[in-house]
């Protein structure tokens, strides 16, 4: 099973649309796919799937202890099923540590070829940890300065979160905090110096960080492209992430803006599978293909 996470920081860039499109593309290839609405504070993946009122949701899993397998519902697309988000819950703010661990454990046990996690916006720990759970990382950005700025912040925070997680796992978190506070005495000026210093403390930490960093190879998708010259922004972002953040991101392609898409929602049919959104479907298909080619493992 491969777990995909679709995130990117800014709200409204098309993360849910992209998750939905990847889900459809994979299901059409004959894979058994489960979409998980992991936008804990603002779920609406069910609306993309053309389901107005899902009978179950993550709230059942969190509050009534219903097994995750039992809240999966079918969509109108063969091979594509959905775990609807946490709506009708009294608390959508954040998950407790135990809730999160339980959810992650159960996601890993799902029986499917591909599980797609549709993330919420922002850089809260819940969002970052869910993103890090995946094998395939997809980041959706829109071609505007605000979206791209938030994406960089997302990646930077993600990197820090990864560092904290690895430090905790080897019991170095508090020592690292103390070193950071006294960084001038240790000759540490940048986060790069900090990591280099930490690597000298423990080979276990160093090896694990290297392994975890190697897993993080985000695929950048540029959504809502209205003009051809915007496409170059995707290449620019890919380059900047590599050169300035030292994260091996790759540009997976662009999705053209569909001015009629808004009319496809709220009906009892999947929004992007009406036969109304040809360019959108084409673009989503092309991007999914590119990402799949980079992860040739296929079904495991």
């Amino acid at each position: 099973m491969q777990i995909w996470a679709v995130g990117g920081g800014k709200g409204g860039t098309g993360k849910s649309l992209m998750s939905n499109g990847i889900g459809i593309s994979l299901a059409e290839r004959g894979f058994n796919v489960i979409l998980v609405d992991a936008d804990y504070g603002g779920p609406n993946q069910h609306t993309y799937c053309g389901i107005r009122k899902p009978a179950t949701s993550l709230a059942h899993f969190f509050e009534q202890r219903t097994p995750l397998e039992e809240i999966i519902i079918d969509t109108r697309i063969e091979g594509l099923r959905l775990i609807p988000g946490n709506f009708n819950s009294s608390n959508t703010d954040s998950l407790t540590f135990t809730q999160k661990q339980k959810l992650f454990r159960h996601i890993k046990l799902l029986r499917a070829d591909h599980v797609i996690l549709d993330l919420g916006a922002g850089t809260q720990y819940d969002v970052l940890d869910t993103f890090l759970l995946a094998d395939i990382h997809v980041a959706v950005v829109a071609p505007d300065a605000m979206s791209i700025e938030n994406f960089y912040l997302f990646l930077k925070t993600l990197h820090n979160r990864l560092l904290c997680n690895v430090l905790s796992s080897v019991g170095l978190r508090e020592r690292a905090n103390a070193i950071w506070k006294e960084r001038a005495e240790h000759g540490i000026a940048t986060s790069k110096d900090f990591i280099a210093h930490l690597r000298t403390l423990s080979s276990e930490f160093s090896d694990r960080l290297t392994r975890e960093h190697a897993k993080l190879q985000p695929h950048v998708v540029l959504n809502q492209v209205r003009e051809y010259r915007q496409v170059e922004m995707g290449l620019a972002v890919e380059s900047m992430v590599n050169k300035f953040f030292h994260i091996p991101a790759t540009y997976a392609g662009h999705i053209r803006y569909d001015k009629n898409l808004w009319m496809q929602f709220g009906q009892e049919t999947p929004a992007i599978n009406h036969g109304h959104a040809f360019t959108l479907q084409q673009d989503l298909e092309r991007v999914t293909e590119k990402i799949l080619t980079a992860h040739p493992r296929g079904v495991t």
Binding site: D144, A145, E149, L153, M233
Partner: peptide, 12 residues
Amino acid sequence: EGSFTAPSMDEF
């Protein structure tokens, strides 16, 4: 001044 930079961040 490209809109793909983030001048507020140290990295840029």
